[in-house]
Amino acid sequence: MQPDSRKKTDILLMVALMPPTLIALNYFMLGGVYFSSFKNFCIASAVSLSVLLGVWIAQGMLAKKMLQLFPSHRDTVKRVAIFYSLNLAIVALTVTLICWIFDLFNILGFRFTAEAWTRCLIAGGICTIVNQAVYETEISFGRIKASQLEAEQLKKAQLQTQFDSLKEQVNPHFLFNSLNSLLSLIAIDPNKAEEFVEEMSSVYRYLLRSNEEQLTTLQKELEFIESYNLLLKTRFSSGFQPVIRVEEKMKEYLLPPMTLQLLVENAVKHNIVDPDTPLTVQIYTQDEKLVVINNLQKKNKAVVSNKIGLSNIIQKYNLLKCAGVEIKETVNEFSVVLPLIKNTK
């Protein structure tokens, strides 16, 4: 929830919950005297309100701090327990202060006794439980709405990635080059031509299925990129040289699907790929991160690019609350460092 929206919600909650809290506390403290006249009602309410407003603000600040310390929904029980315990202490002090003020200034004949203090404390405790229940319910609904929105945004980003990737692969230029490569292989190496068709089929199958999951394992991404690399190696021969060095233990880590394909495609699109000046794309893991790096040999004619691929990757990581994508370009190299997400299943 945005800060402005959160502030408006807090004000609405205060407007809705403050009056019944004020009335309950005064009635338990003063009894029927509170409602005996409009004057009595206004005097008692004004005195109590002056104290409760300050307390309410303090409780709001405390609630905000608790959300910062325990932001996850898994910490709800711990946060509520701590928040409620602190709130009870605040309520006890508040009730004591209000009773003392009423007794000190002899407001409506009130006398500070153990019985009166206990009644007020019970009323304050009940109001605190009700108010906190309402607050926690509102927080839960807010989180559900935020989660649904983020899920929709992530789904949209995945569909956009799939569409962009599929559009790139089925455009006439790609099909022409692929069919040309296949035609040459059929003539000189039928077995390799059959392998080429199988790998091409794997590429399209993965592209079509990639929108079914928000995350995929690094193992699956590597299997896909092996097929994709074979198509590129068939097309560019020794001009394209992929190097993959991934630790076995990292293969079960997660990342958004199609990430590697976008980065390899980006490298091929913007650089010269030739046997005399081969393009080397390295993929390796380091400190629970995936590094994709290629030597930089930009084409003489600049390639038109809207950088959707890289933006899409960054957007996905942001939606997954896993920011930290690093993009670096030097005179000789272009690199992208991606955080890998631990698989908890």
Rank of each mutant, 00 (worst) to 15 (best):
F141D: 04
I144T: 10
A146E: 14
E150V: 10
E152Q: 14
L154E: 04
L154I: 01
K155L: 13
K155E: 12
K156P: 04
K156E: 14
Q158I: 05
Q158C: 08
Q162L: 10
F163N: 09
D164N: 13
S165V: 10
S165W: 09
S165A: 15
L166H: 12
K167M: 06
E168C: 08
V170L: 14
P172H: 06
H173F: 04
L175A: 00
L179E: 04
L179C: 02
S181Y: 02
S181K: 04
L182H: 06
L182K: 07
L183V: 04
S184N: 06
N191Q: 11
A193Y: 09
E194Y: 06
E194Q: 10
E194P: 03
S201V: 07
S202C: 11
R205M: 04
R205G: 03
Y206W: 09
L208F: 14
R209W: 05
S210T: 11
Q214S: 15
L215V: 02
L215P: 01
T216Q: 14
T216L: 12
L218S: 03
L218G: 02
L218T: 01
L218I: 01
Q219A: 14
Q219Y: 12
K220V: 11
L222R: 06
L222H: 05
F224W: 06
E226D: 11
E226N: 09
S227R: 06
Y228Q: 07
N229A: 09
N229K: 07
L232E: 14
L232Y: 14
K233D: 02
T234L: 02
R235D: 07
S237K: 12
S238P: 03
G239E: 02
G239F: 08
G239Q: 01
Q241D: 12
Q241T: 09
Q241I: 12
P242A: 06
I244L: 13
I244T: 14
R245K: 15
E248I: 01
M250H: 15
M250I: 01
M250T: 14
K251N: 11
E252G: 15
Y253P: 03
Y253L: 13
Y253I: 00
Y253C: 12
Y253S: 14
P257R: 06
T259S: 15
T259C: 15
Q261C: 12
L262F: 15
V264W: 08
V264S: 06
N266D: 13
K269N: 13
K269H: 14
H270I: 01
I272K: 03
I272V: 15
V273S: 11
V273P: 11
D274H: 15
D274R: 10
P278G: 02
T280Q: 10
V281I: 10
I283Y: 00
Y284H: 09
T285F: 00
D287M: 01
D287W: 03
